[in-house]
Amino acid sequence: MQIAFDGVSKSFGSGARRVIAVNDVSFEATGGTVFGILGPNGAGKTTMIRMLLDVFRPDTGRISTDGVENGNRSLSFRQRVAYLPEERGLYQKRKISDVIHYIGALRGMDREQIRTRMMPLLERFDLVDSIKKKVSTLSKGMSQKLQIILSVIHNPDMLIFDEPFSGLDPVNVRLVRELVREHRDRGKLVCLSTHMMAEVEALCDRVMMIDHGRRVLYGALDEVRRTNTDFQASVNKDCDPTGLPCVVRVVKDVDMNHVYLKDGATLNDLMRELAAAKRPVRRLVEGMRPIEDIFISVAGSAADRDATPPTKQADAAERSL
């Protein structure tokens, strides 16, 4: 499945109460990738997801699925999508099997299809013994797992997971991670909205960051990291390349030293000079800032912008690219 936003905007309220939630956002995401949607709280991520799911309609711009404009408004699209919202809920008074059957039916499955899909998923998430229990009897972690089962019961072509790791223990985090990778490898599109930057780096192929409704970062993960990094290499903490001919300066970080090279110098030059100078190099990587640092710097500059007049915010957002 392929989705595309083209100049999409959405605002709520009117007059002095008008709030622009999403402002002229464009992006594309295709099957076989994990697409990370990042941004600080209140940036407009959830509004964007809701527009994609046709819960809200955009004020301006186009949303296409598989090249079809407004394809997200069709029933067939809804039946091909999985959605796990950040604020999760379940029918507390109903039995687990009843809830699965209900959601499966709403996803267009018949009873036989539901039964066939349900059991392997329940086994995988260790919930088989609870199938006849009421949802209210489940622990928080088990409820989370049930919600994940419900979201993928219909073998969707696109998964939209909003903070899927919150509240999960490490074992279940790994389970979800595997589920995401498995769907990506089967050619599905996974949209992942999360604040857990380690998961973004571990899972996402492409990312988009929005802030104050505007797109501020967009592209392949490595590319985004590279273009937002001004040093060219990083070496292990106890290896100090200061004074080497190809090095302009070294910035010491918590666990790595970041190296700025002279114009025209390459990583090969650095490796050679480190070896020649017998510096204790055990790790040398291309200079790429962690996505967490990029997130914080962009979100931080957003916080600064909050103090500037609103009319200048758009320009400031453009500059941060």
Partner: peptide, 17 residues
């Protein structure tokens, strides 16, 4: 009201009009 209390609407709205 119970469905709202159980926070299931967002998922339901993603599935049906």
């Amino acid at each position: 009201a119970e469905e709202k209390e159980n926070k299931v609407f967002e998922v339901l709205f993603s599935m049906v009009r």
